[in-house]
Design a protein around this nucleic acid. Structure first.
Lengths: 216, 216
DNA sequence: TCAAACGTTGAGTGAACATTCAATCAGAAG
DNA sequence: CTTCTGATTGAATGTTCACTCAACGTTTGA
């Protein structure tokens, strides 16, 4: 007989259940009693650890920040070496996570962004920090791409656009229960990148001719 | 003494209040009692016209569909004649609507898309229809642009991308209370369009030389 | 003038909500 | 074994939720 796996500690069980339920149902639509049932704890335990449901949401968002690298970015960086390919590997990974569920769920952070950004002043900065983390990684990759992208291209702007494509595409995918709009947006972004890459290539070409004495 | 403006009829007052409150606070966070107070009616009147809060949400979304052309698209078409400029006039109009409020509110349809798309099966198609309407207008403009855009460019894909930029950019704008990410995404889209326009121009150039005997 | 039809009134319904707290428990320290 | 400490228990709190319905007005048509 297999020994029962030791149950994770109370705090972890609460955070796991809350994160999953907030993602599946939204924050306002998730009752504390449901979290208690799914985490298999009693109300006193929750309120011993978290002063309120809002504070629990804050803790969930802080955990998303902590998990950003190990869960989201590291798999992409491990699987894909080329910095520009990484951008599209990230977009593909997101598609692979949500397409099996027919896009019934959205981005856990994006969902919360639209639901509580305005009503919970202390939560909004935590959402912003998550988005900042995401686009910081993409920006890092774009900077690593060096002169493969046009010199005057604003890497930060383009990184924000990659995040825009993820979130805007996923929103439409959820609404239509279809990958079409997400795939369309990613395909257009790919075309844009290809145009930028070839533009940079011709920049480099003429630049080499103009400065070939400096070596390289 | 100015005569009191005649109060709009019950149904209109309910729909106005509900649309405003759903937009400002979200669907789940808006109590029916708040709608009643703001519309200045009693619960019986609401439930005489709408069988449930969900049905009221459906009616609000149907009105959004009806108002899409007169409120959103007609102003853009009236002010701007060039089909490609219209795309960016639409994006600018959306920015002008939400920047005075420091992006405290998001897209009324996008907000609902992420809040209720999964939990309300009968509502999701109404959200989808709204998005379809938006991107159909953009696609129409892109088709009107004719050979100013590359021949092989998928107009439907690009139209979906324009919507993606609106929604994804606005989501980030809400999270950061700043236009930066929205403006960044629009700027990148503008650069993409410029690259497509010049690509189409060289297509036309070589095309003319190859078939100048056919006239035009 | 009257009655049928229809919209409106608003107190009232039970259920679900987030939260509380005195009691109880398990484990560590002496 | 006793005492202390901190986590856990779970019934109970008051509030808010979406919604109901018998009573009441007002309009309509003959």
């Amino acid at each position: 007989m297999t020994p029962a796996a030791p149950q994770p500690d109370t705090k972890t069980r609460i955070l796991d259940a809350a994160a999953r339920l907030f993602h599946e149902q939204g924050f306002n639509a998730t009752g504390v009693s449901t979290i208690l049932r799914e985490a298999n704890i009693n109300p006193g335990s929750l309120y011993n650890l978290f002063p309120s449901k809002d504070a629990l949401l804050g803790a969930v968002l802080e955990r998303y920040t902590e998990l950003l690298y190990p869960v989201v970015m590291k798999p992409v960086e491990d699987k894909t070496a080329d910095p520009i390919d990484r951008v599209f590997a990230l977009l593909q990974q997101y598609r692979d996570w949500f397409s099996p569920l027919e896009f019934r769920l959205g981005c856990p952070i994006g969902n919360l962004a639209l639901e509580v950004a305005d009503s919970h002043p202390e939560i909004r900065p935590l959402i912003q920090r998550n988005f900042d983390g995401w686009s910081a990684f993409v920006e890092k990759w774009l900077i690593e791409a060096g002169d493969r992208l046009p010199k005057q291209l604003d890497r930060k702007q383009l990184a924000a656009t990659v995040l825009t494509v993820m979130e805007g595409g996923l929103m439409q995918a959820r609404s239509s229960r279809s990958a079409a709009a997400y795939d369309a947006s990613v395909a257009q972004l790919r075309t844009y990148f290809d145009l930028l890459l070839s533009q940079a290539q011709s920049e480099r070409g003429s630049g080499e001719r103009a400065s070939r004495s400096s070596g390289g």
